[in-house]
Structure formats: structure tokens, C-alpha cells
Design a protein around this nucleic acid. Sequence first.
DNA 1: GATGAATGAGGGTTCATTCAT
DNA 2: AATGAATGAACCCTCATTCAT
Lengths: 193, 193, 193, 193
Amino acid sequence: MQAPLFDPDKPRDRLLAAAARLFRRQGYAATTVREIGAEVGILSGSLFHHVRSKEEMLFAVMERVIAAMLADLRAELSRAEGGEARLRALIAVELTYLHGPAADATAVLFHEWRALSADRQAVLLDGRGAYFALWDQVLAEAGGAMDPAVLRQFLHGALAWTSFWYRPGGALDLDGLTAQALALVQGAALPLR
Amino acid sequence: MQAPLFDPDKPRDRLLAAAARLFRRQGYAATTVREIGAEVGILSGSLFHHVRSKEEMLFAVMERVIAAMLADLRAELSRAEGGEARLRALIAVELTYLHGPAADATAVLFHEWRALSADRQAVLLDGRGAYFALWDQVLAEAGGAMDPAVLRQFLHGALAWTSFWYRPGGALDLDGLTAQALALVQGAALPLR
Amino acid sequence: MQAPLFDPDKPRDRLLAAAARLFRRQGYAATTVREIGAEVGILSGSLFHHVRSKEEMLFAVMERVIAAMLADLRAELSRAEGGEARLRALIAVELTYLHGPAADATAVLFHEWRALSADRQAVLLDGRGAYFALWDQVLAEAGGAMDPAVLRQFLHGALAWTSFWYRPGGALDLDGLTAQALALVQGAALPLR
Amino acid sequence: MQAPLFDPDKPRDRLLAAAARLFRRQGYAATTVREIGAEVGILSGSLFHHVRSKEEMLFAVMERVIAAMLADLRAELSRAEGGEARLRALIAVELTYLHGPAADATAVLFHEWRALSADRQAVLLDGRGAYFALWDQVLAEAGGAMDPAVLRQFLHGALAWTSFWYRPGGALDLDGLTAQALALVQGAALPLR
DNA sequence: GATGAATGAGGGTTCATTCAT
DNA sequence: AATGAATGAACCCTCATTCAT
């Protein structure tokens, strides 16, 4: 990840970071604007100088992650040489977002999608689509036996679910987790090396 | 699955089935008791003759699925002979719940866990623990290279996530999906047959 | 007036009557739903069992007066014989509404029109148009020298304004006030008898 | 009218003119200080360097019109010779204010009176009383049959109401409208010439 | 003079829940 | 069992006003 998702020097970014934290911990619907205000040390009314509505916070958080993930994945893929390296990049980017500094925002994107209004979902679908197109491309290149679409969903599900159980700092570090995920798909649907 | 989760002849069961349906479609927090009432043709005030609170509905739905999944998995495992058959049973039960008649309740159990109060989560952990103990046992028996705990989480995530994209009735039927999931783990972390 | 505008036996009507009273006294924008609730002895949240929104109360109040005034004017005109009697009916109906039991609602209709959203204004314009069409017809029949449209606006303004200064129960009763208004227009723009 | 009500070179006056415009168009309660600021090109916080509160703007606008109308009516009456000329002056001043350059402020005075706090209303009552004393005097001099107090209210209402329907620049110019209003009262309550 | 972030009270509205009928 | 009016707390949001910069 080149740059942090939220700049601690910008009030609006501090707000979004706090919102992401709470949305992740409690869910969007269960988080009140008063709590978000308290998290950054202002009153709820003051939130609305930086943001038009509670939902705009959700949208902005998601927008940021989507753009950043897409940029990072593109960068990593352009650096990676060979099918395995590209595959590893796919997984590494996803897990880095899920458990690195952008963990809150990424979890929100993955698990609170339904809380976003249909209108706003539509706006984000482009970026999300571009991201998954890269996945499909890499998985197709790998030329495994399993339908790439199904494999993509399996892998995406397995990685997304790590946000519920995996905590970095334990016995298994992020590289280790990445290796395990890589082993999962390599053994499974892709031709053995 | 031996018996349907909710008996259409019992008013309370009809209520729970409706709640599960709406909780799944809209999320627990975004579903109002009015909507649940409307779904079964009564007014919101009348709900509380059958149920003590909205959260009790969530709890009851989850309790039912947990007990039923545990019973079904036990039954299937007792019938299955050999490592692969037991592994297949693991996956088949999970996918049958996720996409069969109990789909609503199962999706609620998997995706609305956070909406349940900590107290009530604790009550359910026993049954859930017993279920996953069976998983761990079967996966350990298979004796693969990957840490069974990690493999369990990967597999559980991959299967849980199917509720967001897989729809029975398409080109890929449930047996086919089961086969694909089986292939994923068999190729990966388990010794090749 | 055949029937009271609001039936004291119906909770919703009691609500509307209270709303009309407060809207008249304080203006629509300056009246809070909490005040309206207090006026009928319920909490603000309970208002919304009878009414969808604050603006719906404004709308409902106006709708009632409009329909009732139109019906009453039609009835009075059908009873009135001769130009002067019809003219007197015009004025009498208007003043009866402005200062009789429907005074609050009528004042709200006349003075809070702007507070209603354009959408809802449009819905009411039909009834209002029919009412003024009767005015134009009666004034045209009278065959005065002044443009009937201008005369109608002058007269309507003069009468509407009475809600700011005239109070029944003083030296001048409603019949007296009606007579004065009749004298105003008869002397002015209409041919002398 | 001798001088414009608001001097475009003075920032405070530009503010008041903008406030009058918006108060008239949307009503006092429905106008926000943000909108007033935007109308003159500053932010809402900066308003309060020129004015102590939103209500002070309303007060100041009304104060200006009241003083100016009184001065103008005095001047016009001192110039007018004969009962009819004085009567015409009465009406002409009123209509000139209602539809000339001071239209916004005058409409606000007439239709937003209730939005002013009782304290501030009291302050303005002197000037307003002096103005209406002139009306009563002129109407009494004319010696008609109708109670001058009632006639004054009828006429005031009829003229005030023109702000809702009359627009200068159409077929009927201000002089024409003045003539019609004069005819209304002359025919009515005043002795025929 | 102007800014813009912050305040804090209060706005309209929603909603799970209660209870007399 | 069901109704439906009522509760009361909490919700998101608005707005006039303040003040350090």
C-alpha cells in the first residue's frame, strides 16, 4: 500500500477513519452518528460540516478502499513476473487490505455492502468490477481445471472470512497466511507446478 | 435434513420463518417488527404474544439452525464411510443448509451473528462449538499438510460466501457445487488420493 | 355550515383541530409536533399513528376547509334569489368560515398556503379553483363597472384580512360585518340598485 | 419615495435587502442564515459581524419600511389638496411601497409580523400607529357613512393582499390599480362626489 | 471583515414495546 | 390471539450562533 487510506491531518479523513472503525465493530445500522462524533471528539451536529449524511460516510469509506485496492493490485501485478507471482499478488493485496492499516475500511466494504443504497452501490460497481476483472484474468491465465468464476468466489469468500477470525500478531503472520491461501488454490484447481 | 426447520402449522414457527426471510433479505437491524407482522398478516403489536422481543426471534432462528445442522451432520457422518465420504458430508450438509429450505435461517446465522447480544451469543456457542468440533475432527483425520484450524476457516468462509453469489436452479446444481468445494480442499491441503 | 369540520369523537380529527389552532396562532413553521401532541394530550411520537407527517396535517386541514367551503357556498347560492342575495351569500360564507367554528382552519388555508409543498398545493388547486369560479360568476352577474377579477381580489383580500383584526362578540356582529362588506362592493364597482 | 430603503454601498444594507428578499419569497421561518449569506456572497458566520441575530434583520427591515412609509405619507399628504387627492395619496403610497423598489420589505412587514417577538413588535407599534392615525384622519375627513375604522381595515386588507396577485408590468399599471382601489372606497362608504 | 469548524438545542420521525379493549 | 393507540427513547439531521484564526 503506497499511502494510508485516511490522512490523520485532515479532519474529514479522521472522521471517515473513525466511522470505518465503528461500522466494522458494530455494523453500519447499529452505529449512531453520536458515537462517531464521540470517537473523534466532536458533537454529532458537527459531523455534518464534513459530510452530508451518515450514508455518505459509508460511501466515502468504500470508495476509498475500492480505488486504493484497484491501484495497488495493478501496481503489484505489473511488478509480478510469472503465474505464481501474480497469483500471490492477488492474495497478498487482499489480505494486506483486510488486515493492514486499511482493515476497518476493507471489512466495511466487504460486509456492509447491503447497507448502502442501491443508487450508491451502482456508482461503486465500476471500480469493483475492474478489480474483479483483474482477478478473473489472473485466475484464467493460471489455467486450472476449476471454473475460474467459481474459484474466484471460493477464494474471495475464504479470504473475506479471515476478517472474522484471523488476527495479525499471532503465530501466523500475514506472509504465512498468504502462503496458506496460495497453497489452497494451487493444490486445488490449478495445475500442479 | 430430516424435518423442516419451521412448522407451517404453528403460528410461532410461521413468525420465525418470516423473520428469517426478512433478516436475510434486509439485515436484522434494517428489518422492523411491523414488516415481520405484515409478512405473516398480523399487526406488530400482536407479534409479542408469540415472542418476547425482536431479538428473541433472531435468537430462536439461530438456535434452530444450529441444533438442526449439528444433528444432521452427526447423522450424515455416522452414515459416511471413509475419509472422502466424511469430507463430502461436511460440505454437503453446509451447502444444503445454505441453499435448501433452511437457506434463510442459515444465512442469518452466518451473517447476522454480530447483531445478537453477547449474552445470547454465549448461549449458542456450545452448539456451534460442537458442530465445528466435528469439522476439526474430520479434517484432522484427513491428515493433510495444512493446519486443520486454518483449513476449516478457509473452507467455512468459502462456503458461507456462496450465499452471496450461488443460486440453485442454474447450470451448477448443489451436487456440482459440493464437488467443486471438495476438489478445492482435496487438491490443496489434503494428501492426494 | 352543515357539519363541524372536525369530529371531536375521532382522534385524528381532534389532532387536526389542534394542529389548525396552533398553526393559526404561531404559524406552521413555528409550531412543533411536540406542541401539537401536548395540545391533544399525547406524545409527539404518537402523532404519527394518525398522520404520516407534519405537512400531512397542514394538507388535511386545508383539504377539509376547501371542500366544506365549496359545498356550503354551492348550497347557499342555490338558495339565494337575486343578485344581491347571491352577493351576500358569497360574503357571508367567507366570513362565517373566517370567524365561526372553522376559523382556525380557514385562517390556516388563507395564510399558510406557502408552507405547503408545491406538489400538495397542486392537489388542492382544483377545489380552490372551483370555489373562486363561483365568485367570478356571481360578481360577473352583478355587472359592475370594475373588472370582476380585480374586484374579486380586492374583496377576497379585505375579507381575508379580517382574521387579523375582527373578533366576533364585540359591538359588530357577523351579520353587521357582512353588511359592511356588502356595502363596500355595492357602492363601488357594482351598479347602484 | 425619496430615497431607496437600502443603500447598495453599505454592506449591512445589502444584507438587509437580501434578507427582505428571501423572507418575502420563502417566509421568515423557512429562510436560513446560510441562504442569506449566500445571497450576498459571504458565509453564514460572517453575517453576525453586521447583525446581532436573524431576528434583528427582520426587525431592521420592518423598522426601515415603517419609518419610510410614514415619512412619505406625511410628505404626500402635505402636498395633496382636497379630500380625493388625500385619499389617493393614502392608496398610492401603500401601493408604491407594495410594488415598487421597497416591495420585499413591505411584504415582509405586512405578512411576517407574527414572526417578530412580542418585545420587538411593541417597539414598532409607535411608528405603525402614527401611520394608521394618518389613515384614520384622512378617512374621517372624507366623512363617509361607513365606520372609518372598519373601512380602514377593509382597504388595508384589500391593498395588502395585492402582494399575492398583482404584478406590475402587466396590463394594469400601478396608477390604474390605484384608481381601481380609489373607486372601491369612493363608491362604497364615502359620499358620492 | 471574513472564515469555517464547532456548538448545542431542538427539529421531525422511527420504532420496539406495552396494554386496555 | 389480535387490535391499535400510546409510549418514550433514540434516531439522523438542521440551524442560529460563537469564536479562534
